[in-house]
Design a protein around this nucleic acid. Structure first.
Length: 1076
RNA sequence: GGGCCUAUAGCUCAGUUGGUUAGAGCGCACGCCUGAUAAGCGUGAGGUGAGUGGUUCAAUUCCACUUAGGCCCA
């Protein structure tokens, strides 16, 4: 056996497991990683995946891109780092561990012990990084994984894995270095701000984190409250809010200075509100006065909760605010600077008092009377009742709006005044924008505009989190107010006055790091580290600096940035990053640009390739809670990794991808075309014992068809190379699929007889060699996209025969196109031939003439500039269409098959002929072809209708072309085909015989005869078919392998009554001999 | 309110120096092939290219505005 037999229908997952076994057994991945050592470098920077859960199909999408780009560059001979990265620290891991342990709040964590909790977080990362590595390998992602199946109590597991981990010492200390640089430029400050806050997690949620799923449609109480104006009797502001709990901290109201407000009398009371919003009033009202908002400025009022101790001595003012809209509420906006972001900013600007009512778990602080100690979640209704009791409630209604929720635990966020640490973006934002502009290419190109928009609008970066598992912010703050930022482990050791011994040997995490005390530079007192941990985007943002270090020594502090930049410089900046678009402009892209700008004043990547979101097959977002999420492993086992990868690559990355098993089936069908080609080749090459080793394609033996497919093949190589180089996988897939189609539906279909014939001549060998060439080149083109499938074919087609060939298709170079083979003229000729054939089929379809019925002749119309049809092309067309001759070919060949007919345009002839219009219309319809030609040539035509002479012009009629009887015509552009549908007796008889042969073959199959069994045919039918059989007896016998065909009835293996083009025929088949 | 993206067949989407007649897959209908066969192939129907205006000899393509949807920000 030359080749391994291949199954007719490919089971992708099964094949992939077999190939994965082969790779493992022969250490293929390691050899692949080594292949280009010492050659020119191409640098890919992996954005870390959070090692917190199994991989979803959305991860598989992105990771497939990363793998495909790197594989292509490997085939092009570049040395790469193949470094994968895991994101480890942050709230998302904590939340999962809390769930595991059944914790409800931060108190549970403190009770459990921070050290144990942190260890649990570490373990989770360890576990899921292994799970994700396995899933990545399953989908064919070849990275430098190192040793990754480590036991949970292996202390060195992180070193054994070659992936980077953002919780590593190296990563954390490099962030310290960055923060110190920021501090040296004065960017770091501790600020008070109102932040979105999750009371369950007990932490601020940064702007960056309120992502798409950070909002939910929620219903709250919208209340309208009366604010009594001081110094004006019986006059009130009407103020609307959806967060009654914030009324306790109200210190002002805002009006739009130029909008029109009204003073109205309603139920005997005077109210103020925006004119456009008077429909909120209940009952009758009378407008007493219209006034611009600015006329209300300077008034003071009684806050509804002025009895609370926290409100003591507060003056409540009216202030201007231009962002007020007339779309909802009352146009007078309640301002609580301690409970809202804009409120806080306005409060600062207009010197309002700030009252912060809640502690970090959302409980009212002392000073709020009956509310103190109550949970903010539970106070809306009591507050409304309290207001009502005191006569201050004007109205209350349900109000549904999009409201921010915690993106991890789904709790409603509140806005809370907090002390957090920030990096100021005042000057930095411009520098980052400059870096962004230096990026060579954003794919898609709108990326730069998008990033710049974010940079223009973003707030200062809040880097602190009041949590446990994360970067220990290296900030030691003294009671005197001074703070110190430590930039490295070394510096920490030098500065440590207490606690170093306890800390040494641990990673720079809580709680160990918190033991260390240093001396305040200013007052000399011992100071503690602030308890906050870092925002996790610090962790991911530093990786262009912290992770580019010698792969055999990833964890030594001083052999990489910033101590020893030798290795780092060879790989920085990255040639490519590839990540999901929607969130990353304000996340990863933003933070790596920021950190790189501070550290190196330039962008850390040259090209960014981004992609949209993955949805389910109905276009819905995937959520675990919704039940429509799909794990990568499940998808791989169900449809196969290569099918997923092909689907991913085919998709336009800017669009959301709808992933599902339905779409996967479509992909499989396309790939089965290629599989069928391969399986066809194997089947026949095996029969003929065709061995391509040491054989070369000889130009002189090639047919036109061979030259054509070789031209297509080399165009394909050229175009795919270009597309890959452009990171445009969509094009690679689309033009490859077109090639599968050309190869299968034209090259093989037209070449079948060459493979079937019994003699092994040079023509047959040429066909084998050409098909072989196409297959082995093709698999090298698409190997980066379908590593398993291509490996399978490679092993069977190449390695199986040639021990000197590279061990794996993934060690092969990307094919070089042979431009001499590319022949556009030939490609055009075949394309023309195929167009004509398809028109011929359409014409047959229209006339209801199946291919089996031979026809006498056809006429072909071709465009003027076309060089005419070669004999070869003509022959192909006739054979494909089962037609005897071509009657005419030319630019005007179809003129004879059409007749003109005219249809009156009544709009035109109506006014001309008034009452006789119907008669004229009939006359027009009856005009002959020749008369219409006259009309066309002369522009007008005279005639007699009911004794009257009339004249019509060209414009009065619509000219239609109709086919002459006996022809069926199809036109497409300048191409046209007319087939002669008239049947002579010979043609009819031949058609009958072919129908009979076809049905006899079906009977042979049904009777389970072997392909080579000889038979006898007995028939009983009418005269016409009998004549037809007599006339074509030899043909019938040779096609059906019949020794005899006789009239009469006999018993046999199978007997049937057939319908042969409407003629009944009783047929019996007898088997005469059988070969085994 | 500002920025970005999108709008093409029932569905999912292609379509560039602006140029005859806007394409594909799926689905649907009809059919072909029967030596790749629990496969393969073809043909057909289906479009006022979201709307309006502009630039141009010519606009799905360029520009402006409007509408609808999506994303980001305020």
């Amino acid at each position: 056996m030359l080749f391994k037999e291949v199954p007719k229908n490919l089971d992708f997952p099964e094949m992939e497991h077999e190939i994965a076994g082969f790779w493992q057994k022969n250490d293929i991945i390691a050899k692949y990683l080594d292949k280009n050592k010492g050659k020119k470098k191409w640098s890919f920077q992996d954005g870390p995946i959070t090692a917190n859960n199994p991989m979803g199909v959305h991860h598989a999408w992105g990771r497939s891109y990363k793998d495909m780009f790197q594989r292509y560059k490997t085939m092009k001979g570049f040395e790469q780092r193949y470094q994968n990265g895991f994101d480890c620290q942050g709230l998302w891991v904590e939340v999962e561990v809390e769930k595991e342990l059944g914790f409800k709040s931060k108190k549970d964590i403190e009770k459990y012990g921070i050290d144990k909790f942190v260890q649990k977080c570490r373990d989770r990362v360890h576990k899921y990084s292994m799970v994700q590595t396995e899933s990545s390998v399953r989908i064919g992602m070849w990275m430098d994984w190192g040793e990754w199946k480590t036991s949970m109590d292996d202390k060195d597991w992180m070193k054994k894995s070659h992936s980077y981990y953002t919780m590593s010492e190296v990563n954390n200390y490099t962030i310290w270095h960055f923060l110190k640089k920021c501090h040296e430029r004065g960017f770091i400050y501790e600020g008070v701000d109102v932040m979105p806050w999750c009371a369950r997690c007990g932490t601020a949620i940064s702007d960056m984190e309120i992502a798409t799923e950070g909002y939910q449609e929620l219903t709250h109480k919208g209340v309208i409250v009366r604010f009594e104006i001081i110094g004006r009797e019986n006059e009130f502001f009407l103020v609307w809010t959806t967060t009654p709990w914030t009324l306790t901290s109200n210190t002002g109201v805002a009006v739009h200075p130029t909008l029109t407000y009204v003073k109205v009398k309603n139920n005997g009371v005077i109210y103020y509100l925006a004119k456009a919003l008077v429909n909120v009033l209940k009952g009758e009202y009378k407008i007493l006065q219209e006034l611009p908002g600015k006329d209300l400025l300077g008034l003071i009022y009684k806050c509804p909760f002025n009895y609370l101790p926290a409100q003591k001595d507060v003056i409540h003012k009216v202030i201007p605010w231009e962002d007020i809209t007339e779309s909802e509420g009352t146009g007078i906006v309640h301002i609580a600077p301690g409970c809202g972001k804009e409120d806080f900013a306005l409060g600062k600007e207009f010197d309002l008092k700030t009252i912060a009512p809640l502690d970090e778990l959302g409980i009212y602080l002392p000073g709020f009377d009956w509310l103190s100690g109550k949970d903010v979640k539970d106070v809306a209704q009591p507050i409304i009742e309290d207001l009502d009791k005191r006569g201050l409630l004007y109205n209350v209604e349900d109000y549904t709006h999009r409201y921010p929720v915690c993106w991890r635990c789904n709790s409603e966020l509140i806005f809370r005044l907090v002390d957090e640490w920030f990096i100021s973006m005042n000057t930095l934002r411009h520098e980052i924008a400059e870096s962004a502009k230096q990026v060579e290419r954003w794919i898609p190109s709108y990326g730069l505009a998008h990033e710049l928009d974010w940079l223009k609008n973003m707030a200062d970066w809040c880097i602190s989190k009041k949590r446990y598992w994360g970067l220990a912010l290296p900030i030691w703050k003294c009671k005197c107010g001074h703070f110190t930022i430590i930039g490295s482990k070394e510096e920490l050791q030098q500065r440590a006055v207490e606690g170093w011994d306890e800390f040494a040997g641990n990673s720079p995490h809580r709680p160990w790091i918190d033991r260390i005390k240093i001396k305040c530079e200013k007052c000399g007192k011992l100071t503690m580290r602030i308890p906050d941990v870092g925002n996790p985007w610090l962790d991911a943002g530093i990786v262009p600096f912290s992770t580019i270090r010698p792969p055999d020594d990833m964890h030594t502090l001083d052999n990489g940035y910033p101590y020893d930049k030798t290795y780092w410089q060879e790989w920085f900046p990255a040639d490519l990053i590839s990540e999901s678009l929607p969130g990353q402009f304000r996340n990863w892209f933003y933070v790596i640009l920021t950190m790189s700008t501070v550290l190196e004043k330039k962008p850390p990547f040259k090209v960014l390739q981004g992609y949209a979101s993955l949805h389910d097959e109905h276009g819905e977002e995937m959520h675990k809670s919704k039940g429509n999420a799909i794990w990568s492993d499940d998808a791989a086992e169900k449809v196969g990794a290569d099918i997923m990868r092909w689907m991913f690559a085919k998709h336009n990355p800017v669009q959301n991808l709808n992933f599902g098993y339905g779409p996967a089936k479509e992909i499989k069908r396309v790939l089965l075309t290629l599989w069928n080609v391969y399986s066809f080749f194997i089947t026949y090459a095996e029969i003929d014992q065709f061995n391509p080793v040491n054989k070369k394609i000889s130009e002189s033996n090639l047919r036109k068809l061979d030259k054509w497919i070789l031209s297509k093949l080399n165009s394909l190589i050229e175009q795919c190379d270009k597309a890959y180089d452009n990171f445009d996988l969509t094009s690679v897939v689309k033009i490859s699929e077109k090639f599968f189609e050309d190869l299968s539906n034209w090259y093989i279909r037209r070449s079948r007889k060459r493979f079937w014939k019994s003699e092994n001549d040079i023509d047959k060998e040429a066909a084998y060699l050409v098909l072989y060439e196409c297959l082995v080149k093709l698999i090298r083109i698409i190997a980066p996209i379908m590593p398993f499938f291509c490996e399978h074919m490679y092993q069977n087609l190449v390695k199986n025969l040639d021990q000197n060939a590279p061990e794996s298709v993934h060690f092969c170079d990307f094919p070089e196109p042979d431009s001499k083979r590319i022949n556009p003229t030939l490609e055009q000729e075949i394309s023309m031939t195929r167009t004509i054939v398809s028109l011929g089929r359409a014409a047959r379809n229209k006339a209801n003439m199946k291919i089996r019925q031979p026809l006498a002749s056809m006429t072909i119309n071709v465009p003027g500039e076309c060089p005419g049809l070669s004999d070869d092309a003509k022959h192909t067309i006739l054979e494909e269409l089962n037609i005897k001759t071509v009657k005419a070919i030319g630019t005007d060949a179809l003129s004879q098959v059409y007749m003109f007919s005219a249809v009156p345009i009544f709009d035109k002839i109506g006014p001309k002929f008034a009452k006789s219009v119907n008669k004229v219309g009939q006359w027009i319809k009856s005009l002959s072809h020749e008369k219409i030609e006259q009309l066309i040539n002369a522009g007008s035509l005279k005639g007699t209708v009911h004794g009257e002479t009339i004249a019509i012009s060209k414009e009065d009629i619509e000219i239609r072309k109709i086919e002459v009887p006996g022809a069926s015509v199809m036109i497409q552009g300048d191409y046209g085909v007319s087939i002669d549908t008239k049947l002579t007796q010979d043609l009819e008889y031949e058609g009958l015989i072919r129908e009979l042969i076809h049905k006899t073959q079906l009977m042979r199959k049904e009777a389970n005869f072997n392909l080579t069994d000889r038979i006898k045919i007995f028939y009983q039918t009418d005269e016409k078919l009998k004549d037809a059989i007599t006339d074509n007896l030899d043909y019938l016998k040779s096609e059906t392998l019949a020794l005899e065909a006789n009239e009469g009835l006999q018993t046999g293996e199978i007997e049937k009554t057939l319908d042969i083009n409407g003629i009944q025929a009783k047929i019996t088949l007898q088997r005469v001999s059988t070969e085994t």
